[in-house]
């Protein structure tokens, strides 16, 4: 793994730490939900760096699947925050 990928991983880990700080501290539930959504998008970035670093394409499959699951989970959490049932 080259120096570029190591620096990129370091920056993404720093971003994740900032998100985790907001998940831990966040005064209300929507703060934590926003931070979880952002963490899901950052994991797609991790998959990008892994795909470029190793040259294996299946990391992009993981990225697409993670983006889908993260979107559905975030919508479910938003519905829960709104105080409605999941089928309304």
């Amino acid at each position: 793994m080259s120096t570029f990928e190591q620096i990129a991983f370091g920056l993404l880990v720093l971003c994740s730490m900032l998100c985790l700080y907001r998940i831990g501290k966040g005064p209300s539930a929507p703060d934590r939900t926003v931070a979880i959504d952002i963490l899901g998008t950052l994991i797609v970035g991790f998959c990008c760096i892994m795909a470029v670093g190793t040259g294996r394409e299946y990391y992009m499959n993981i990225a697409i699947a993670w983006a889908l699951i993260s979107f559905v989970g975030t919508l479910a959490l938003a519905k829960y925050l709104e105080g409605r049932t999941y089928d309304a």
Binding site: S28, A29, P30, T33, V34, D37, T41, V44, C48, A51, E57, M60, N61, A63, I64, A67, L68, F71, T74, L75, L77, A78, K79, Y80, L81, E82, G83
Partner: peptide
């Protein structure tokens, strides 16, 4: 890998604002 990256980029560009809008709406209503 390039094709999958483009598909993933389009998907994130479409869904991420929708998710943020839903969260903010839920936050206001809660």
């Amino acid at each position: 890998m390039g094709i999958k990256a483009i598909i993933c980029a389009v998907f994130i560009l479409l869904t991420s604002p929708v998710a943020a809008h839903a969260i903010c709406r839920g936050a206001y209503l809660s």
